[in-house]
């Protein structure tokens, strides 16, 4: 944990071109933009607040809505609008269309490197959410992450680029680099308390195409 804090503050201090946005009710996440690539750190996605009667860790159940265009979180009250492009809850990611929202959104997953994607043909590839099946598949090794059961850790699969169509049908490429607070995955030997309290923090970068 200490390492994570040091790492992120170091990052923030040395790069003057980046701006920090704080929101009071959803913890603090940070958004930096450099050369048209926007990097988002510590965007919480329904962090764990307790355990259910069955002993499963649970959050509030709410998604965190985010506008890729405005580079900012969207209030929960706007969930039924076209003001957001992507939403996060645990490992589930929504796009604004189909069963998830009124927008013209959608997504598909590209295997390759972020830098190599220049454009894509949205009409032939994009899927929309049809709960419980989402455009960005959930499940270990199905979509953007693998889940290591014995060690209870979620790791983004390298080389997975989420091609996203925003609510306004603008196209983006997005790459998730970490799922933990401060962008640092706990050690496999860390206690389950640490693993639970630091997870569901999205760290990703994206760029409009």
């Amino acid at each position: 944990m200490a390492m994570a804090i040091v790492a992120s503050s170091f990052y923030a201090c040395t790069d003057n071109t980046k701006s920090i946005i704080d929101t009071s009710n959803n913890g603090s996440y940070k958004v930096y933009t450099l050369n048209d690539v926007t990097e988002v750190q510590n965007l919480i996605a329904d962090t764990i607040i307790g355990t259910s009667a069955q002993g499963q860790p649970v959050g509030t159940g709410h998604f965190t809505f985010f506008s890729l265009k405005n580079r900012a979180m969207v209030p929960l009250t706007d969930s039924a609008t076209s003001n957001w492009d992507v939403a996060f809850r645990g490992t589930t990611i929504l796009t604004n269309a189909g069963t998830s929202g009124p927008g013209m959104g959608g997504a598909y997953m590209h295997v390759g490197l972020f830098a190599d994607v220049i454009s894509f043909n949205a009409d032939s590839t994009i899927r929309t959410d049809a709960a419980p099946v989402y455009a960005i598949k959930t499940g270990s090794n199905k979509g953007w992450y693998i889940y290591d059961g014995p060690n209870n850790l979620v790791t983004p699969i390298p080389g997975r680029v989420l091609m996203i169509r925003g609510a306004d049908s603008k196209l983006y490429k997005l790459e998730i680099n970490n799922y933990y607070k401060g962008g640092v995955t706990p050690l496999t030997t860390a206690t389950s308390a640490i693993k639970l309290s630091t997870q569901r923090y999205y760290n990703f970068r994206y760029k409009a195409l």
Binding site: L113, F114, I157, P158, G159, E175, N177, N178, N203, R205
Partner: peptide, 14 residues
């Protein structure tokens, strides 16, 4: 060339 790993920032590279 279908296997990726991560660089120091956690983003993918070949």
């Amino acid at each position: 060339g279908r296997v990726y790993t991560i660089d120091a920032s956690g983003f993918a590279r070949l």
